[in-house]
Write a protein that binds this DNA or RNA. Structure first.
Lengths: 207, 207
DNA sequence: GTCTATACTACGATAGAC
DNA sequence: GTCTATCGTAGTATAGAC
C-alpha cells in the first residue's frame, strides 16, 4: 500500500526537518508518488502529520507489547521483582533510544515534546501514558513509603537515564569518543543504566 | 544594535521550527527590519544559523562562569566536596533546562544534537566540552576506583537527570499533572535530582 | 486511486537606490 | 546600514483527466 510508504518517509522527513521544514513534494517523491496522493490519502500536510503520530504510537505499542506483557501486573510483585521489572522496562526504552531502526520515531517524538500540539496528544494517549503508568506502579511497589509527588519525580529521573541517549546523542558520542554507538557502547551504557536504576531505587538514604 | 535583536529572534525561530522551517523574512520582520539585513550582517541564512550557535555558546559560558568559578579545581577535593560540587553543577543545568529564559537556547541545542552539523561543533567546543570535562573530573574524585569507561557512562546518566526536564518537557508536565513547571515543581524536581545524584555516586553497591 | 496542470503564496539571494 | 524591487525556485492546494 502506497500510504504506508508515504508514512514511513514522512516520519523521517518530519523528524529531521520539522513540520514546516519538510515538504510534501519531497515526501511524495521519496515515496515514489506525487504530492496529490498525500491530499488524497491524508487530506493535506496537517493530516499527514497527525497520521504519522498515530503510526508511531501503533508501532511503539507493538514494540513494547512483549515486555509489558512479560512484566504483567505490578500489584502482586515484591520489591525485588518490581526492581527487576523496572530495569527491564527502562532497558527496552534505552535500546529504543539507541536503535537506528527507531531513529525517525524518536526524532519525531522529541521534536513534538518541545512544541506539543495535537500530535503529542495522540502519542501520549496512544502509548506513552501506558508506560508512564506502568513505571509509576512499579516504583510504588519498590518504594511504598514515598508520597505520590516523590514517586513521580523519581520516575522522571529514572526515565532520564534512557532519554539522554537520544536527546543528547551527539554529546554522548563525543564523550565516549566514538563515531557511532556500537555494540561495545550499547553494553557499557545498558550495564550502567541497570546499576543506576538499582541505586536510584534504594531505600536506605545516601550519606 | 540591530544584529543582536536579529540573533535573539533567530534562535527562537530556529529552535521552534528548525533550520529549513524558519524563514529569514519572518525573522527579519519580528526583529523590525527587512530580510536583506540578514544578508548584510550574516551573509545569509546559513551564516545566521552559525552566528546563533556562537551566540548561545557565549551566553551559556557567561551563565555558567560563576558556578564553574565557585567549583574551581576538582583536583584538591575530597569525596564529599566533589559530591556536593556535582550536585551544584547539575542543579544549575537543571535550572537552565526548566527556565523560560533559556527555552530558546535549549530548543536550539537539542535540535542540533539530533542532526549535528557545523553549529554543533561550535557549541561543543565553545562551552559544552568544558562542562563535560568538569563533570568527569568531579566523578573521578568521588569514584576513583572506576575505570574511564564507567566514569563516562555514569556521567551520562547523571547528566540525564537534568536533560530529561527539557527533552521530555511535555511528558514531565503531564506526569506532574500541571499546566506548567512552577516554583513548587521546580523545588520538588531539584530536591529529587540532588537525592538521585547522591544515590548514583554511592560507592557501596546496591543489593 | 493516481496522475497532470495550474493558481497562488512564500522562500532565499541579490542588485542597487538612498 | 537600511531599504525596495525583482528573479528564480519551491511550497500547498485544488480541479479535473484517465
Amino acid at each position: 500500500m502506497a500510504s504506508e510508504t508515504i508514512l514511513d518517509v514522512a516520519i523521517r522527513q518530519f523528524g529531521d526537518r520539522g513540520f514546516e521544514g519538510a515538504s510534501t513534494r519531497a515526501i511524495a517523491a521519496a515515496a515514489n508518488t506525487v504530492m496529490s496522493s498525500i491530499t488524497y490519502h491524508f487530506g493535506g500536510k496537517e493530516g499527514l502529520y497527525l497520521a504519522c503520530a498515530d503510526h508511531i504510537a501503533a508501532h511503539l505499542a507493538e514494540r513494547f507489547a512483549p515486555i509489558m506483557a512479560e512484566i504483567g501486573s505490578p500489584a502482586d510483585m515484591d520489591r525485588q521483582q518490581a526492581t527487576e521489572a523496572t530495569c527491564a522496562l527502562i532497558e527496552q526504552i534505552a535500546l529504543l533510544m539507541m536503535s537506528d531502526e527507531s531513529r525517525d520515531w524518536t526524532n519525531f517524538l522529541i521534536r513534538e515534546q518541545q512544541n506539543p500540539g495535537p500530535a503529542f496528544e495522540r502519542l501520549y494517549s496512544g502509548i506513552m501514558h501506558h508506560m508512564v503508568e506502568l513505571l509509576r506502579a512499579l516504583i510504588v511497589r519498590v518504594r511504598p513509603e514515598l508520597d505520590a509527588s516523590a514517586i513521580r519525580a523519581l520516575g522522571i529521573g529514572i526515565f532520564g537515564q534512557a532519554l539522554v541517549l537520544r536527546a543528547a546523542r551527539a554529546t554522548v558520542i563525543r564523550v565516549l569518543d566514538v563515531s557511532e554507538i556500537g555494540e561495545t557502547e550499547k553494553k557499557l551504557l545498558l550495564d550502567q543504566i541497570r546499576y543506576n536504576i538499582k541505586a536510584l531505587l534504594r531505600s536506605d538514604p545516601p550519606s
